[in-house]
Amino acid sequence: MGISFSTWRAGGYANAAVPRRADPATLQQLGGQTMGTTWSLRFDNPRMLPLEQVREAVEAALARVVAQMSHWEPASDISRFNRAPAGSRHVLPKEFTEVMACAFHWARASAGAIDPTVGPLVACWGFGPDADPSGLPAPEVLAAARARTGWQRLEFDEACGALLQTGGIALDLSGIAKGFAVDHGIEALRGLGLTDLLLEIGGELRGIGRRPDSQPWQVLIDGESPAAQRIALADMAIATSGDRWHRREHEGRRWSHTIDPRSGEPVAHALASVTVLHAQCMQADALATVLTVLGPDDGVSFAEQHDVAALFVSHDDASPGLRTPRATRAWLAQASA
């Protein structure tokens, strides 16, 4: 992953189960499994709430997101929608509605660089629960998948949380739901009265409040790169999208798991990763996907236009292995705050 807790040396990944020697007893850690990855929590616990109570709050919040938005779970709300007949109307839970509203907002703003209906294309290229394992998709298969996608085909009534299945639509919210799960977990912990914590799910993080020593929570960005930097998460979230974690290869062609919904093809530009800072992790997650699809030039222009704090890291063709960072104005202002 591109982001880690900055509790170890630069370049290392944090182990939430190992406290630093100088940490006070109230600074505690928990972790577990969710969404095919891990979650970890560091929090100040001045009232010494039982750790099991804290764990239960986090896991209940994450289970709610999985039950609604995991397309890996056959019984989830999203899976039932994807199987539903044309013309069926679905009233979504409030969490699902919030994520769909975010997806629609950025789909409109980016002219489809993020698209909640991208599921069939993701499967074509060998990713997700319905992945086609045969390698490169045949042109007719790809054309059929493209015919089933397009966020404009959805009829979504945000006011009442209703979504119409117009036929053959397969939602995939994996570019947003994990970030939302971080936000949802934060709200569950706030419900216990906890106000100072750092929650991470699969590399997406959000910090609220401060450490017991009154210092802000910090994370290490791109710890394996010469461009590594520490960022304070003072009531801020951070998310990264990139080409280093999920890739496939067939007959000499390698491709990323990030699919451009507009072309139906995996992204093929020079970006290695995009990291976004935002007050909400859901928004940071969605924007990291948008900017990764848009690429190093259009992505930077979009981020500047929308005042997005983003760090773009590109492969350097002239020097393999070297990555070149490029930050937006909002990123430089936030990183220096």
Rank of each mutant, 00 (worst) to 15 (best):
A270C: 14
T240S: 01
S174N: 11
A239Y: 01
G135Q: 08
G295M: 02
P120N: 11
L194F: 11
F180P: 04
V118S: 07
L199Y: 14
T34M: 10
I201R: 07
I201N: 05
A10G: 10
C160M: 10
A181K: 09
G135K: 10
A144E: 15
P19L: 06
P116G: 07
G31C: 05
L136T: 13
K178F: 14
P129K: 11
D317Q: 12
A318Y: 04
I186H: 06
A303H: 02
A63H: 11
A75M: 12
A177E: 10
R55L: 10
V65S: 04
A61F: 06
S6W: 01
G168R: 12
S88N: 07
S301C: 06
A63Q: 15
M1G: 15
L287W: 02
Q283T: 15
L164S: 06
L171Y: 09
A188Q: 09
A63W: 04
L189E: 05
E200K: 07
V276D: 02
T289N: 14
A111S: 13
V276T: 01
E155G: 12
D77L: 09
P139S: 11
R211A: 03
L41D: 04
A22T: 12
V267Q: 08
A309K: 00
V99L: 09
G207V: 04
A310F: 00
Q305E: 13
L41G: 06
Q229K: 03
S214H: 14
F43V: 03
E265K: 13
F81C: 03
E98C: 10
G193S: 04
P325I: 00
H269Q: 12
P19E: 02
A16H: 15
G193D: 05
L154C: 12
P266W: 05
L189Q: 08
R47I: 02
D183Q: 10
L192F: 09
P325T: 00
G87K: 09
G36N: 04
V274N: 02
A86K: 13
